[in-house]
Design a protein around this nucleic acid. Sequence first.
DNA 1: GTCATTTTTTGACTTTTATCAAAAACATTC
DNA 2: GAATGTTTTTGATAAAAGTCAAAAAATGAC
Lengths: 191, 191
Amino acid sequence: MEQGFNDLLEALSGFAELSSEARKAIEQLVTYEQQPKNTLLLEQGKVCRQLYFLQEGFVRGYYFLDGKDVTTWFAFKGDIFTSMYSFLSGQPSLESIEILEESRILEIDSPDLQHLYNCFPEFNQVGRLLMEKYYLELEERAISLQHMGAGERYQALLLKHPTLLQKATLGQIASFLGMSQETLSRIRAKY
Amino acid sequence: MEQGFNDLLEALSGFAELSSEARKAIEQLVTYEQQPKNTLLLEQGKVCRQLYFLQEGFVRGYYFLDGKDVTTWFAFKGDIFTSMYSFLSGQPSLESIEILEESRILEIDSPDLQHLYNCFPEFNQVGRLLMEKYYLELEERAISLQHMGAGERYQALLLKHPTLLQKATLGQIASFLGMSQETLSRIRAKY
DNA sequence: GTCATTTTTTGACTTTTATCAAAAACATTC
DNA sequence: GAATGTTTTTGATAAAAGTCAAAAAATGAC
């Protein structure tokens, strides 16, 4: 059995006990992919049909707005990610997904995931708990955008992801935080 | 059978087919509550153990920050709502829930909901799809806070909830949009 | 190591939004 | 309908953040 797959099972086991049948079924449906830096895993305008598990590496989601590159999320080692809107709705994705550091990825496509939900109803629990977790993360982000100043948002992010500053460019972090690159640069100079 | 309960079943049937056993179990666990304007359904600092269905009325979630009242969400007729963070994590709620218009509410408490998940594994699908829906709504909100100006945020909100302006106060809407009341008042004067 | 490219910082200036204070409009109670 | 309280608007000013442009620093290729 492949190493990457064990990492995935471990991540999932945080959400629910999986029967060995379910584990086997997952293993058969999941595929492995290794991608170098700068690869576009998903292009804006295409439907995202995959749910990804980042075994190793670093990835972001972003889109263009008025010619500007706006990062909407970062995925770290061990994260499950996708273009949520497109994956859930089946509509063309507004965002692209870019590999920022060479990454090892496991993926399952949408029909196969539906198959898992159908064959193993208890697997819906994994999906539900995963969505709950992502919801709470997003809520934190929305609240910080709603009422925190630029400096506070930056500090909160650093507290949560101390390594991000080394991994992403200033522009990526700034747009993720909803501020201009110059503002972030000036904020950073203060600390 | 009570009228309110049918409304709930109808709302849930948008997410999954429910067996008649599941429907019966839900009916037995759900309780009805009618509350006048200005009631606090949940107080900041207490754990929120209920998931609510708003059969009729109007409700908001809010909290105090630096002495200011910040609205985080509104619930309309037919919505399912709760203090998500507290309900999912079991931690004391950061937000309070206030009835803004006399409301008829159906509710189920957390242990009973867990019971449904356990006895009817397919019920997890309802939970999953519900979380997916709420995630996408929140994502829209986060994106609008991340890169839209105050005027655009207001217009987007009006488009989505044209009735909100009649139901909530300016201050509530302004804080929900992440801007001061004065700014919203001036924006509104322009249209 | 040097050159070219990209990323980050700095400066001057503008725009947007917040804040404080007071007036006006609107509701509510008696 | 006068008096009271609340909500909304308006005005003046201040603070925060954005924009544009150029310099400085860091990175990468050869």
